[in-house]
Amino acid sequence: MNSSIDLTGIGKPALLEVSDLEARYGHARVLTSITFSVAPGEAVVLLGRNGAGKSTALKAIMGLEVELQGRILLDGRQVGGLATHHIARAGAGYVPEDRRIFAGLSVAENLAVGRQPARDGHAWSEAEIWTLFPPLQAIADRRAGHLSGGEQQMLAIARTLMGNPRLLLLDEPSEGLAPVILARIAEAVATLKARGIGLVVSEQNLGFVRTFADRVLILETGTVRFAGTLAELDADPSLVTRFLSV
């Protein structure tokens, strides 16, 4: 498997290095020998059907819910097995599939919950968040439970950014969103990449990730079936029918 080789070729040290990751829920093994790395400013997309293990991979990196084995290095430091809040403080940010915004809190309060001390001399401010997601500013005082799906997704990402992560894990960000919102989120992802944040994005919507994906992994039944660039994926249409068929 050559996916652990730094495909960006620039020689940057990896931000996230996952090797031989295995995860299980009770007796059921849900991930088997997953290996990949993410460089700063790089977006790696996990593709696959429902139940392929994409979400589990993100949760495992974040130390949520699963028992796991294998190495997870964040900035060269083993974080596998740490408590979730330590992994968050080590620089990982997680945006879950169902967003899990705090529905009873206002938009501004949601952001405040996510606030953590500055990292590398920079801390996200509300002003920067409003620049990234302008629609949030006008609704800063609204209860988050009353937001639309798109607004909730923006808030979920923004809330995580307040922790000044170096690595962002996005689980199915496109789910149920209108194309206009998708374009805005894709644009935001590009901005974050430019600022050196590394991303792992789990997705089913190939169209959405095209604008920002640097590399693609296809997962099926908890194992990596393909690792390569978008161009390599497009070169072999059978991959799409076999693993992603719409």
């Binding site: 209108a178 194309p179 206009v180 919102i181 998708l182 169209g207 719409v246």
Partner: peptide, 15 residues
């Protein structure tokens, strides 16, 4: 159907 699934619609209106 392709449009709905693959998300590259041009006709989308804001939510």
């Amino acid at each position: 159907v392709r449009e709905v699934y693959l998300g590259h619609a041009a006709s989308g209106e804001p939510e």
